[in-house]
Design a protein around this nucleic acid. Structure first.
Lengths: 202, 202
DNA sequence: AACACTACCAAGCAAGCGCTTGGTATGTAA
DNA sequence: TTACATACCAAGCGCTTGCTTGGTAGTGTT
């Protein structure tokens, strides 16, 4: 019973505690190397008791992914709603995604990125459908920027380059260091619309 | 005996054929989900016979990573040697890394990125030392560009953003589509030095 | 002819895995 | 007081896993 930190957006019911513990273990050791006995030990129950809450180990993985996609899709929506100009919407999106990846939902987001193929084909399709909603929010903003002439590249390609930049941060970004999430977000926005595009470019 | 395509830079000795098969399986199913029986079946031998060539399954994973780092470090060196101007050196590096990731060593490079933590601590440190050499080649070129004033950001951070952009391509880039490796490389170079920096910006 | 080396097979062991089973304690509501 | 649901335990089943063992066929060398 080591007690895992709760992942933001997951309640602390028995089920929720299992999900938080699983998210942490899946990130640290990977899905396959994590045993149901590991998860049970963190929460402080017997391994068999897990199957009172989930049918299979894979269902735990899927639940982690589902919760974190839902939570962060809502965060993106809020980010967009709070701004009017496309460039500022982009900045808000980048900040939101960085926060998701290195901040309050980092465990589950990392799992989402790295343990994708551990799901069977059906569950992958189901998760993909949720992810499409998330991605469409990005594409709408990027297409607005493209129409404004703020960058030349195909918005689809641009989104993939951004995904790479933000998604990789879980391997190196350290919030305790000098670079803040906001600072990094500005850097990434500059990669999209150019350094000179904004009035207050430092 | 399904016969795996040989990974560029790996010979076709019995050992080499095992490595190519392993690289392909590790990429497709992940290290943990791939059994030694899977690997043996592709090469057409019994599972126990694998341990005549490698002491452990983990040693196979490490060998795949070691070979691909060595091969691509040499490719980076050649890319730098063939150009004189820093911007063109950067372009050559990006092309080389993209070729490594989506081209002739894609299986092994993907494994290198995604199965990192399946190595034990010692082997991780060993692989990291090899990777540092590879990374230093990038940093030297990026520091030259930075001194020339071609971008403002910290070269270390810039390298990480590039790593994200190139590393993620294995999830979406399709060489048969309209965008070529060269076209994508130009796009990424533009993200670093700005679209207007080059004479021939289309 | 004798030896040694490489590359493999056939069989199977011990450990660890996800998951099942039958049962118990506690809380809540009729 | 009975009835039912939730949350769990103790034990262990059946299967898969990485790896070991003892042996064989083919090749080259002296």
């Amino acid at each position: 019973m080591t007690q895992a930190r709760a992942v933001h957006g997951i309640d602390d019911s028995p089920r929720g505690r299992l999900l938080s513990a699983a998210a942490q273990l899946f990130r640290d050791k990977g899905y396959e190397r994590t045993t149901v006995r590991d998860i049970a030990a963190v929460v402080g129950i017997q391994s068999g008791s897990i199957f009172h809450h989930f049918k299979t180990k894979e269902e735990i993985l899927f639940a982690v992914m589902e919760e974190v996609i839902h939570f962060n899709t809502e965060r993106l929506r809020a980010a967009i709603a709070a701004e009017n100009r496309p460039v500022e919407r982009l900045r808000a999106l980048v900040r939101a995604e960085l926060t998701a990846i290195v901040g309050d939902t980092s465990e589950a987001m990392t799992v989402l990125v790295t343990e994708w193929r551990c799901l069977n084909a059906d569950k992958q399709r189901e998760a993909l459908a949720l992810r499409d909603i998330y991605e469409q929010l990005w594409l709408d903003v990027l297409e607005d920027l493209h129409k404004e002439g703020r960058f030349r590249a195909d918005p689809f390609i641009m989104r993939r380059l951004i995904t790479g930049m933000t998604g990789w941060t879980h391997n190196w970004f350290d919030q305790s260091r000098s670079l803040s999430v906001e600072g990094l977000a500005d850097l990434i926005v500059d990669r999209v619309v150019g350094e000179e595009s904004e009035e207050g470019a430092a």
